[in-house]
Design a protein around this nucleic acid. Structure first.
Length: 217
DNA sequence: CAACCGATGTGCT
DNA sequence: GCACATCGGTTGA
């Protein structure tokens, strides 16, 4: 295995949709104040384009204090609370208001600590495939919260960054499908294929059988 | 398996 | 008020 290389500003200088695909196979790394390191491979992402995209936080160019990080330079962390108790973690891209949601990871390092960060009721019975298979599960496992991580520059931060360890994800392994949890009031945007995942990964949050079948035919 | 539901805070209308 | 880029539990086919 190659030694991992940290991703820089130049690496992440990408438009939203390209970044979503580029991030598949890369590593998300979190260093805690205790010095412990958590690491996972990104296996599922979603693109939120802003502007025309009705499912986006920044639909119609809406800009507020809460979604400001999406307007900051590519590689800025955008963490927001949803449903009153969960967080979602995004990375801003080059287009103003656009970002990539990280939806699932394959846990690689600090797995026992990740389990502790997930619901306390799960007394060590959590499988690796259930640790980070969802946008908010991933935040819990990686100890990512709005107060700790929002607005961090992940190309400079000492507590949150991305790495490339040379494991390439080739195009044929990538499935695209509609995004998860988008209300039908978003119209066509609820169906637009802006979710991407690694087809062979058991760590994906939700599979799209039809899209997977279409890959091989 | 799927469908449904309650928990729960924030920022809009 | 109400909608929400969710999760974890329960119910029922």
């Amino acid at each position: 295995m190659k030694s991992p290389r940290r991703l820089s500003k130049a690496d992440l200088n990408l438009p939203c949709k390209e970044m979503a695909i580029f991030l598949l196979g890369k590593l998300l790394v979190r260093k805690l104040e205790s010095g412990s390191v958590l690491k996972g491979r990104i296996v599922e992402t979603e693109s939120y384009l802003g502007g025309e995209d009705k499912a986006s936080n920044t639909y119609n160019g809406r800009q507020t204090a809460a979604n400001e990080p999406l307007y900051l330079p590519a590689g800025t962390a955008f963490v927001y609370m949803t449903y009153g108790m969960y967080f979602c973690f995004n990375i801003s891209s080059t287009e103003p208001g656009a970002g990539v949601l990280l939806r699932a990871l394959e846990p690689l390092q600090g797995v026992e600590l990740m389990k502790k960060f997930r619901t306390k009721k799960n007394k060590g019975s959590l499988k690796d495939t259930d640790l980070c298979n969802g946008p908010s599960k991933l935040c819990m496992a990686m100890n990512i919260s709005k107060d700790k991580c929002n607005k961090l520059d992940i190309t400079e931060s000492e507590s949150l960054w991305l790495e490339d360890d040379g494991e390439a994800v080739e195009k044929p392994q990538i499935v695209s499908s509609s995004r998860i949890g988008i209300n039908s009031s978003a119209g066509e945007w609820a169906k637009t294929p802006l979710r991407f995942y690694v087809v062979s990964s058991p760590h994906v949050s939700k599979r799209d059988k039809k899209a997977e079948d279409a890959l091989t035919t």
